[in-house]
Design a protein around this nucleic acid. Structure first.
Lengths: 232, 232
DNA sequence: CGACAGCATTGATTCAGATCAATGTGAGGC
DNA sequence: GCCTCACATTGATCTGAATCAATGCTGTCG
């Protein structure tokens, strides 16, 4: 795909419809493009905070703790906007889960431009609050849930974000490996595997191939996720 | 303290300096006031997202999972602005750690008003990103760190947020109980206590009284926190 | 089309932190 | 000043998930 095509995806996905041509052009002139192969980490060690638009593909935002321990902080899919901090108590990098095309900006330039169009800042705020909400949900899972509940919650979340309804359930094609799932849920590969086996033998899911999950019994999975009961 | 005084705190802490009188007055007319005694949960079950300014005191944002498990998602101090979601997979409530005075707004009204002053939206965005960054750091701690590392990180973070430098270290007066610390770090009270004992006997901290911590050896604590090495 | 390399599953054992169970202690009330 | 009680500490035991160790799959490349 060409740069103009990709930028157009960014523009329609992120910029407000009624934005002025001037701003649109300014964004286009500041935008940078990166394509990444599976496993690439195009922003590792950049000295500045970055704002990244995933134009095509999917990525993981990984934090590094001491002794090589990794924690995946978020997964990002097609059309998501990610903010990658440059400096914090841990070092972050964005890594491609599959071949990706990315549009990115140094955060300060991006915000400065956004400032010229209030709707856009407002929009960014909404996205940030949404990311915060998701991060809080993750906090709960990591702090207070069992391995089984984490896996159930993970599959529900993926079904919601990248699942497609089929006649006999929800089909999910996972772009991430078992290791990635483990690193996201604070578990080990083995535990992830055992929990999936458990769900399989309870007829809640099927796993036809490494990266596919067919969710058969959504209700059962929800009750396994340990969420608070909703009023009916 | 009277309502005007409290609102003034909000205005100086949150609103930009050069804001127009009209907007200032609009905020004042939409602002609501709540005082909360220790343990009160003034926003439990409110049907709408709320934006809350902690004018005086300190609070915890608590999420409820099934079976009465609690996870503290954030602590908030004097001058902090908190966003409390009404509806999510878990139910959130803001609880006073000590007697508090709060200024609050339904989120939609707040954002609508903020929209009239770009700087303010921009400011809110910055706060949201900061909260996100903090939440991500917590995610790492809960997903991949040992009890000892979590406690070390917790004390460092408190030292940074509410500590005061003294001639022989950093003094911290914790407004939260051991249970709160445990619920924040995904541990039990007993484990928190044991880790504090460990730090005490290693001469890293002193704990003169239930709620005081005197941090003696910052470097030692940092090396125990499992953060990634910074370039020197 | 077959082999191999990397990912996933399954099984045995260990261990950090939870749970269960007393015992200690310091801040507020009388 | 002393009592009290909720909070904190300490100790013994248990357990869910980690770790260690094979073994099984699958998609891919010659």
């Amino acid at each position: 795909m060409t740069f103009p095509d990709l930028f157009e995806r960014f523009a329609t996905g992120v910029l407000p419809l009624d934005i002025s041509d001037a701003i649109h052009l300014k964004f286009q002139s500041v935008a940078r493009y990166a394509s990444a192969r599976e496993g690439d980490a195009p922003f590792q060690g950049a000295g500045l905070d970055q704002i990244i638009f995933v134009a095509r593909g999917s990525t993981k935002l990984v934090a590094q703790a001491s002794q090589g321990r990794e924690q995946i902080v978020a997964f990002n899919f097609d059309g998501d906007l990610v903010s990658v901090p440059a400096k914090a108590a841990h070092s972050y990098s964005l890594i491609a889960l599959e071949d990706c095309e990315l549009i990115y900006f140094p955060a300060n330039e991006f915000f400065q431009l956004a400032g010229e169009e209030t709707v856009l800042v407002y929009d960014m705020l909404e996205r940030a609050l949404k990311a915060l909400a998701r991060c809080r949900e993750k906090t709960i899972a990591l702090g207070r849930k069992t391995a089984g509940e984490r896996i159930a919650g993970f599959i529900l979340s993926m079904a919601d974000r990248i699942g497609t309804k089929t006649h006999d359930g929800i089909a999910i094609v996972l772009p991430m490996s078992r290791r990635d799932i483990a690193d996201s849920l604070g578990l080990t590969i083995e535990t992830v595997s055992r929990q999936l086996t458990e769900l399989r033998s309870a007829n809640v899911i099927e796993t036809p191939g490494r990266s596919q999950v067919l969710l058969r019994d959504v209700a059962a999975l929800k009750s396994r996720a340990g969420h608070i009961q909703e009023a009916a």
